[in-house]
Computed example of a mutant assay.
Amino acid sequence: MDRWRSGLDGFVKTEDVSHVEIASVNFDQWTLTVALRAYAKADQSVLGMIHVVFDQVEGFRLLDKGAMLRFPWKRLSDDGAFVHRIPEGGWLDLERDAGNILPAAGAAEYLIVTQNECVSVIAYAEPAYEWVKSGAANTWTAV
């Protein structure tokens, strides 16, 4: 697994975040948006919401972290990342090798890891990030 990008970079200091959790998952045929709630280490207050937005989605699945025994990953506290690009050996390879899917060239797998759940995403474009600071209405920053 690559430490591909920490979705917290440019938003908040990683050392200030205790954990993230999935607040919602929304797919509308064109876009998959995974909303993550970030919590402060100091007092467990909500720092804000991070929307991880995927276009050109081939598929996705949400599983309890305990159900993903075959795929090891690091927790947010280990390396500050919660979105990982999986170069090989993940869900995409598993399904392709089983003959269940035949994605077009350029498909990549991403894994969003939280305290409780994980979301695997197969997409043809890298995700974008949007940040909403807690208590600030409509203060979006696209990265």
Score class of each variant (00 low, 15 high):
Val34Asp: 02
Ala67His: 15
Leu62Phe: 12
Asn116Ser: 15
Ile101Met: 02
Ser6Thr: 05
Val17Gly: 04
Asp16Trp: 03
Glu130Ile: 10
Thr14His: 07
Ala125Tyr: 01
Trp140Met: 14
Asp9Glu: 12
Val132Tyr: 09
Ala67Trp: 09
Gln56Asn: 10
Arg85Ala: 08
Ile22Asp: 08
Asp9Asn: 06
Ala125Ser: 02
Ala40Lys: 00
Cys118Phe: 03
Leu94Asp: 04
Pro127Arg: 01
Gly89Trp: 05
Lys13Asn: 09
Arg96Thr: 11
Ile86His: 00
Ser24Asp: 14
Asp55Arg: 10
Val25Asp: 00
Gly59Glu: 13
Gly135Cys: 06
Pro72Lys: 08
Val121Lys: 00
Ile122Asp: 00
Phe82Val: 09
Leu102Gly: 14
Gly10Phe: 08
Met49Ala: 12
Gly89Phe: 07
Val83Glu: 04
Val132Ile: 13
Trp73His: 14
Tyr110Val: 05
Leu8Lys: 02
Val143Trp: 14
Ala40Cys: 07
Tyr124Met: 10
Val25Arg: 01
Glu117Ser: 05
Ala123His: 01
Trp4Asp: 14
Tyr110Lys: 06
Ala98Leu: 14
Ser45Pro: 01
Ala40Glu: 02
Leu92Phe: 09
Arg3Leu: 14
Ala40Tyr: 03
Val57Trp: 08
Met68Gln: 12
Leu8Gln: 03
Ile122Met: 06
Val119Asn: 03
Ala104Ser: 06
His19Asn: 11
Ile86Leu: 11
Trp140Gln: 13
Pro103Ser: 10
Leu69Gly: 13
Phe71Ile: 05
Trp4Gly: 04
Pro72Trp: 10
Asp78Gly: 07
Ala23Ser: 15
Thr31Ala: 14
Phe11Asn: 02
Asp9Thr: 04
Val119Ser: 03
Asp93Ala: 10
Ala81Asp: 09
Cys118Glu: 02
Ala137Glu: 09
Lys133Tyr: 03
Leu47Glu: 03
Ala40Asp: 01
Trp73Lys: 15
Gly89Cys: 13
Asp93Cys: 08
